[in-house]
Design a binder for these strands. Sequence first.
DNA 1: CGACAGTTTGAAGCGGCTCAATCGGGGTGG
DNA 2: CCACCCCGATTGAGCCGCTTCAAACTGTCG
Lengths: 257, 257
Amino acid sequence: MNRLLIASIDRFGPLKDDARTSLGACSQTVVTVSPGHSLVQRGEPSRLRVLAKGLAVRQHVLADGARQILGFVTPGDLLDLGGLFAGGDHEVRALNACEVRQTTAREARSLLRQHPSLLAALCRAVMTEAKLQRNWMVGLGRRSALARTANLFCEIYARQKAVGLAAEGRCRLPVLQADIADALGLSVVHTHRVLQTLKKSGLASLRDGDLSIEDWDRLVGLAEFDPDCFRPQHDPAELAATRGRHTLPALTAAQQA
Amino acid sequence: MNRLLIASIDRFGPLKDDARTSLGACSQTVVTVSPGHSLVQRGEPSRLRVLAKGLAVRQHVLADGARQILGFVTPGDLLDLGGLFAGGDHEVRALNACEVRQTTAREARSLLRQHPSLLAALCRAVMTEAKLQRNWMVGLGRRSALARTANLFCEIYARQKAVGLAAEGRCRLPVLQADIADALGLSVVHTHRVLQTLKKSGLASLRDGDLSIEDWDRLVGLAEFDPDCFRPQHDPAELAATRGRHTLPALTAAQQA
DNA sequence: CGACAGTTTGAAGCGGCTCAATCGGGGTGG
DNA sequence: CCACCCCGATTGAGCCGCTTCAAACTGTCG
């Protein structure tokens, strides 16, 4: 009954009941993708894809082969917001074994047309993503490699924590150093040295695909991390009216290495 | 009759007629802001502000005073998309003498609730901005200072051209070198040297607030500029149905130094 | 005229890059 | 069981792009 899809969108809610039932009734297929393969190609229209398991990145590759990672996608995130009205402008690639649930482009479009509350929620989702992107821009442009890395770790941990995917001071982050490098605009070698520094300073460490936060406060301080930078854009009034009404189902066991 | 507001949103259209008439009927005040002052503060809710004249930047300043410019705002652009549902996350500052037209937060919110086609258009506007941001991220992370600068010039020229604000191979760009630096994540000194290189190579030059494109093709090549990166996210089908129906009124004389 | 803001230029330093080699673990074939 | 390979992590050395500091230069405004 598409509970994950509904919950993922409802996070940006509030959805009206009719939108929720339509979403529940729409067709949904499950797709599994192996590491390194594409979940969403450039130019594809939206199918309201939701990541159920795994870890993926939005990315863009340049003519010379350089890659810039534009964001991380964790379970419960919508994959193809960029293609809601036209084709998306970037691809999404699996770092992990990923499971995606998706409907059809036709149904996605029709749902979008019929339910303003769905449109509003997705609009908020897009805005939330845009906000996150701005934080990345600030980092790429004006923060040192160390602060950037700290910021990335803060973001990833806080996001997973927010959806119940993180343990206390620990979460999965099955990436290569090359992925971190491409996310932060660094070389692999320098990324490695920065990671060492973070570990030696007792702030955080990354081993075997596990991110462990050793000193959250100092990490946040170093990063100048803004804990609101990834939060859904709730309307304060609406939030109060619907507080606690809908919550994301626990995903704790969902993201497998 | 709020023609500019309607046209600015309709660019991402199509708006339904009732939305257009509601927009036409909403209150609108004209605000002028002198250079260096804030057009939109962090945390302000949307008033459907449109820039009528001048040039502004979205920006974020760090604790140490460093500034990252997140985007340029040219006449006909909506200023406060970030605050549609909650407070915006960044401020917008005038580089220029600016004229802004805005309604009230209350009216903006009520319009948004009543007109799904308005919501859809604004959603597209947000997505378009997000797309532009991704292009900046790629530049900040993976392009050389020269290519980044070229890219910025391409973007600014192409955007102004698209709304009729650019002459052939020339447009206004009343910025300091420090602004370019903060947009590209560079120091002022290096920005200056890059500008010199660009001029000496006969690609483009910036003087007295005028950007002149000397060799568009080579500039685009150097920048790997994607001409779609700023285009509204039209639905191809809807685009065909409404082609040429509504156009942005000429703004040619509107952006005064 | 001085004051100031912005541009221009030079010189030195550093953060991060490139190149190159080694190391370690997991898989595979013999 | 070992030999081998491959991928990714690790480490070192040298270099380059860009930064920082500092000073001179220019135009504008009082």
